Computed example of a mutant assay.
Amino acid sequence: MAPAVLYARETGLGVAEFRQILVDSGLSAIRPVDDEERLAAMLAGANFAVTARLDRPGRPLVGLARGVTDFAWCCYLSELAVSPAAQGLGIGRGLLVEARRRLGPGVALILASVPEAVGFYERVGMERVADAFWYRRQR
């Protein structure tokens, strides 16, 4: 039987756990995981994080939805990361459900997907947005 998954809003996530979930999920290919100072700044600048932890000793972090929100109109999710060891347990969907529950129905949830995850977001009912724009990071 699969262990229960505990979802929570966490404000004190440490850099080491943040780095590990980025590495485990594969997002390390597009995140600055070797720059601890930048990871700390990323955590400090986010005002919304929902975690998924397994209900077993040590409560390992197996999923994270991290973002920035005004809690009134929109929330931009910078990461939706799930450890491959926990994939198939519905954690990605669970993180999105929990984030939406905590934000409420008046807040839009927005994210930029890696190409490999587009199908997942379509399956969970997210709508593609055609008219999005950005300035790319220089580093």
Rank of each mutant, 00 (worst) to 15 (best):
residue 45 G to Y: 03
residue 24 D to H: 11
residue 82 V to N: 04
residue 9 R to I: 10
residue 83 S to C: 10
residue 110 I to S: 09
residue 76 Y to N: 05
residue 24 D to P: 10
residue 64 L to D: 05
residue 91 I to G: 04
residue 18 F to H: 07
residue 96 L to Q: 11
residue 101 R to N: 09
residue 34 D to A: 13
residue 65 A to P: 00
residue 96 L to T: 05
residue 47 N to F: 01
residue 120 F to W: 08
residue 130 A to Y: 09
residue 46 A to C: 10
residue 63 G to H: 03
residue 50 V to H: 00
residue 54 L to H: 02
residue 42 M to I: 09
residue 30 I to E: 07
residue 107 V to D: 05
residue 74 C to G: 15
residue 90 G to N: 06
residue 57 P to E: 11
residue 47 N to W: 01
residue 68 V to R: 03
residue 42 M to S: 06
residue 121 Y to H: 03
residue 86 A to S: 08
residue 30 I to C: 06
residue 54 L to T: 03
residue 107 V to W: 02
residue 68 V to Q: 09
residue 86 A to Q: 00
residue 67 G to P: 03
residue 43 L to G: 00
residue 123 R to I: 08
residue 60 P to T: 12
residue 20 Q to I: 07
residue 37 E to Y: 10
residue 68 V to D: 05
residue 102 R to C: 00
residue 57 P to L: 14
residue 30 I to D: 06
residue 86 A to I: 00
residue 5 V to A: 07
residue 56 R to D: 05
residue 120 F to N: 03
residue 62 V to Y: 02
residue 81 A to G: 09
residue 32 P to E: 04
residue 117 A to S: 15
residue 110 I to P: 00
residue 122 E to L: 08
residue 111 L to I: 12
residue 105 P to Q: 12
residue 41 A to H: 14
residue 21 I to W: 08
residue 43 L to W: 00
residue 116 E to D: 15
residue 86 A to E: 01
residue 102 R to I: 01
residue 67 G to T: 00
residue 63 G to P: 04
residue 34 D to R: 09
residue 110 I to L: 10
residue 60 P to E: 10
residue 91 I to M: 09
residue 11 T to V: 09
residue 100 R to V: 04
residue 73 W to Y: 15
residue 59 R to Y: 12
residue 120 F to G: 03
residue 21 I to Q: 12
residue 67 G to V: 08
residue 87 Q to I: 13
residue 88 G to M: 12
residue 95 L to E: 01
residue 74 C to K: 13
residue 137 R to I: 09
residue 34 D to H: 11
